[in-house]
Design a protein around this nucleic acid. Structure first.
Lengths: 232, 232
DNA sequence: GCCATTTTTTGAACATGTTTAAAATTTACT
DNA sequence: AGTAAATTTTAAACATGTTCAAAAAATGGC
């Protein structure tokens, strides 16, 4: 073994490959953040790591794979942040705000990276599409987080609608991320303000659905949701 | 002059460059549609046109410029189609359905091209971003079409909301296009059905805003719209 | 510690979008 | 028609993401 070290009382072996790929990842991200993704050359990265170009490709199948790893890691810290949001309050509005805020925070300072990710995500054939490929898994996990957020919350609403909420909230968050990507204001303040403004209104509308009268609107809406998300 | 020809009683001179670039455009699109954008090489195109690679670049600054031209032309035929939709009915629901249907029709058979366009459109730095660059103009023209659609229609709704509708309908249409891009069903039937289902509900909600009672929801919504679209 | 096997690295080559300087062609004017 | 200026075309080079076969290094069992 190349490298052994002790972590939490358990011997953990780390292969040389893991060490190198982490190093490559860190060097790469540093370059991407400083010079931009497109402006950073694979040759730059290999040189900075004092490795050959081919060796880089041994560790990452392509340039995008590096930022896919970033996306994966950002998801992990997002998930972790959600736990503490849920521990803090049962109020659905606060939770939803907290979750979206947590998500944006994981992207903070990496807006250009997210743009690169988005442009692949929009391609249904790409492995970064939220519906196929590697991102599918993250989407499903995110929907599960939304489900968890709702189930243990104070939200009361029409039963049928409730089953669609996890996917709807996922879409809402994706929309806000898109808004954020396009938001050129200082530190994307516009996005933050917008979310603060819109989220309570959405929650309020959802709560209204308990009133029987709302059936007029809700009836046809359910069919629409089924077409959008799939049958329940 | 390389080429003169008569059109509508007026002498129109067509430069050699115009003739060549149209030819290149047509050859290119044929290849893109048959083999796919990424699978078609600039060398393929130059060879098919019996021109050198460099000559191709004299007529188009880059590969994407070819499909930008397609996008421009698709917009022109969309705009034309809208006129006949408006001539046909004043009913806002029918108009909105007709306009969106017309838009999708201009993309029919070119889904892959639209995917390529979308992945650039999602990048705020790209000339294809709807907010900057060349597409900005098309976005503004499309919003104007929506405005025209509303103004001469039978739609009655709360006055303040009305001023935001052109942009809102534009966003709605963009959303449906995105849905269409991801829709893998036969001939994107799911998208068509979804639009048929959702559009009348949206129109109905908008019409409800004439009822004074609706102020409870509409009040905060207006501020949200202002943040989304800008002040009126 | 030595050898067979596996993992990692290397350097060169390849594919394709793009640029460029010079040559060929076309145009506009007399 | 002849010529200077412009437009268009060419061939070669360049930049950069990616692949590949062979070499080097590391590993595991004896």
């Amino acid at each position: 073994m190349w490298y052994k070290h002790y972590m939490n009382e358990t011997k953990t072996t780390v292969s040389k490959s893991q060490v190198t790929s982490r190093r490559l990842y860190e060097i790469s991200m540093a370059h991407f953040l400083e010079k931009g993704f497109d402006q950073t050359t694979m040759r730059d990265l290999a040189a900075a790591a004092e490795l050959s170009l081919g060796a880089f490709y041994y560790h990452f199948p392509n340039k995008e794979a590096v930022i896919q790893r970033f996306y994966q890691q950002s998801f992990d810290s997002f998930k972790y942040a959600c736990d503490s949001v849920f521990a803090e309050t049962e109020n659905i509005e606060k939770r939803l705000l907290g979750v979206i805020e947590a998500r944006l925070k994981t992207f903070e300072g990496s807006r250009e990276i997210l743009i690169v990710l988005s442009r692949s995500a929009v391609d249904p054939r790409s492995p970064l599409s939220p519906f196929g490929g590697d991102q599918k898994e993250i989407r499903e996990k995110t929907v599960s987080i939304m489900r968890e957020m709702i189930e243990s919350s104070d939200l009361k609403c029409e039963k049928g609608l409730r089953t669609y909420l996890p996917e709807l909230f996922w879409m809402y968050m994706m929309g806000m991320i898109l808004f954020w990507v396009f938001d050129e204001s200082n530190n994307q303040k516009k996005t933050r303000d917008f979310i603060q403004q819109l989220t309570p209104q959405i929650v309020r509308l959802i709560r209204y659905t308990r009133i029987p009268l709302s059936g007029t609107v809700l009836g046809p809406l359910k069919k629409t949701l089924e077409m959008l998300i799939g049958p329940r």
